[in-house]
Amino acid sequence: MQRVNMIMAESPGLITICLLGYLLSAECTVFLDHENANKILNRPKRYNSGKLEEFVQGNLERECMEEKCSFEEAREVFENTERTTEFWKQYVDGDQCESNPCLNGGSCKDDINSYECWCPFGFEGKNCELDVTCNIKNGRCEQFCKNSADNKVVCSCTEGYRLAENQKSCEPAVPFPCGRVSVSQTSKLTRAETVFPDVDYVNSTEAETILDNITQSTQSFNDFTRVVGGEDAKPGQFPWQVVLNGKVDAFCGGSIVNEKWIVTAAHCVETGVKITVVAGEHNIEETEHTEQKRNVIRIIPHHNYNAAINKYNHDIALLELDEPLVLNSYVTPICIADKEYTNIFLKFGSGYVSGWGRVFHKGRSALVLQYLRVPLVDRATCLRSTKFTIYNNMFCAGFHEGGRDSCQGDSGGPHVTEVEGTSFLTGIISWGEECAMKGKYGIYTKVSRYVNWIKEKTKLT
């Protein structure tokens, strides 16, 4: 034993070699072989497995989906700052455009905790909710729209109204504003409101030439003092309507412009014939205590009207009353817009006519005020429907199939267009061939041609 100890002390290297040989010859039971080890760690190889990531292109799944990435790591994937920024906006807080917040056709661009709407022409605001041009839906104005110097929408209202708090709607500024039905039992019968379409306001006024200088022999019209197929109006439903009495009662109609003036057809009036105007009328054979009678003290036909040349060209006249009318729910003026808007309103496509005229061709006159909704007829169809001249200051309205029309005794009465609950004068009943005849239409004086003249002559002093 002493000898062994001496050998170990003198030859430590020998001992180490012996131990190493023993270990190498022993069977290893701690580690699995290569094949079995792979069965336990069965993990798919990654895209760049075996390579240094710093030297390969980034992978979106590896960089940002398996674990949260930084902007720089995302930049490695896209290799483009702009594309990385677009991805980053949604990656950080989701897609803010998912709810489609942009209105009126706006395009949404996502941002971090926010979004941006790219608005089409005519709109602005956070969600493109603000109209900035009158060309689109009248700028959301209830009545009139004008573009300011910086191309912003400025709404306005006709006389007797003021802008509401929203700067879009119009509200009454006087007790009985024009064009409004205020009798409670008839307010439910107000005709369907007309909503502004998209309009090209630059070209809204037709490029028409008034044929002022045409000389033409007097034409022989049949029954051209021209509501057939209409309905009984309720008291106060058309408070701007008046009836004219002269040699015979209810020979023509008219509309209240203001307390002192009536507008009617020029062919209705004769110099030297006494005319009485009755406002607030409903049943011409009954006294309903809503009527107001006034005498006409002055007749002003349009300066281009000449019955000797043509009885229905420039067929418009103004009547001055001896005493002002007292405005109330049964006696209310009709609204008159400017030339541009009167023309736009007419193009809405349908209007209402009213009167006490004959209820059928050569038949009896109506006792109760009649009204009828009539569609506008395109000019080409209008011209083809008659052998008589249709001037540019006239328009056609009615039904091709016949059966409904204005008729004798309705002449001078109103053709009105309702705009968001307020009625505007767009025409004056003038003439036609018979009444409600198939293929024939009622012919009306186009008020847009005469609004400046009306307003100039009827100013209240």
Rank of each mutant, 00 (worst) to 15 (best):
residue 362 K to R: 12
residue 340 E to Y: 14
residue 207 A to Y: 13
residue 258 N to W: 00
residue 33 D to S: 12
residue 165 E to F: 07
residue 160 G to C: 02
residue 217 S to T: 12
residue 406 S to N: 14
residue 152 K to M: 11
residue 14 L to N: 02
residue 427 G to L: 00
residue 238 F to P: 03
residue 32 L to V: 12
residue 148 S to Q: 12
residue 251 F to M: 07
residue 51 K to F: 05
residue 212 D to H: 09
residue 317 A to S: 03
residue 78 F to L: 14
residue 108 C to N: 00
residue 8 M to W: 13
residue 274 K to E: 13
residue 47 Y to F: 13
residue 269 V to P: 03
residue 348 F to E: 15
residue 157 C to L: 01
residue 419 V to M: 09
residue 199 V to Y: 13
residue 28 C to N: 03
residue 17 I to M: 14
residue 154 V to E: 07
residue 8 M to Q: 12
residue 84 T to L: 06
residue 391 Y to V: 05
residue 451 V to I: 08
residue 433 E to K: 07
residue 43 R to H: 07
residue 49 S to L: 10
residue 151 N to R: 11
residue 289 H to F: 12
residue 228 V to E: 11
residue 261 W to S: 01
residue 228 V to I: 14
residue 435 C to P: 03
residue 275 I to G: 03
residue 384 R to H: 10
residue 40 I to G: 15
residue 67 E to L: 06
residue 409 G to E: 06
residue 114 S to Y: 07
residue 249 D to W: 04
residue 159 E to Q: 07
residue 299 I to L: 05
residue 417 T to N: 08
residue 235 P to S: 06
residue 155 C to W: 01
residue 180 R to P: 02
residue 113 N to I: 06
residue 32 L to C: 05
residue 356 W to L: 09
residue 34 H to S: 07
residue 368 V to P: 08
residue 193 E to S: 12
residue 237 Q to D: 05
residue 220 S to G: 09
residue 216 Q to E: 11
residue 400 H to F: 10
residue 161 Y to W: 10
residue 307 A to L: 07
residue 317 A to F: 00
residue 84 T to N: 11
residue 379 R to G: 05
residue 44 P to L: 10
residue 417 T to Y: 02
residue 221 F to E: 11
residue 348 F to C: 07
residue 247 K to V: 14
residue 393 N to V: 02
residue 280 G to P: 02
residue 342 T to C: 03
residue 76 E to T: 14
residue 15 I to C: 06
residue 220 S to N: 12
residue 345 F to G: 01
residue 458 T to R: 02
residue 386 T to A: 11
residue 2 Q to E: 09
residue 327 L to K: 03
residue 312 Y to T: 03
residue 106 G to R: 00
residue 5 N to R: 09
residue 75 R to E: 14
residue 127 N to T: 06
residue 388 F to M: 10
residue 214 I to R: 09
residue 96 Q to D: 15
residue 57 Q to D: 15
residue 27 E to N: 06
residue 209 T to E: 12
residue 93 D to L: 08
residue 415 H to L: 03
residue 451 V to P: 00
residue 160 G to S: 07
residue 112 I to C: 03
residue 346 L to K: 03
residue 246 G to K: 05
residue 188 K to D: 06
residue 50 G to K: 11
residue 207 A to Q: 10
residue 404 R to I: 13
residue 390 I to F: 12
residue 402 G to P: 08
residue 44 P to W: 08
residue 87 F to H: 15
residue 287 T to P: 08
residue 70 S to Y: 08
residue 133 T to Q: 14
residue 146 K to E: 13
residue 402 G to N: 10
residue 300 I to D: 02
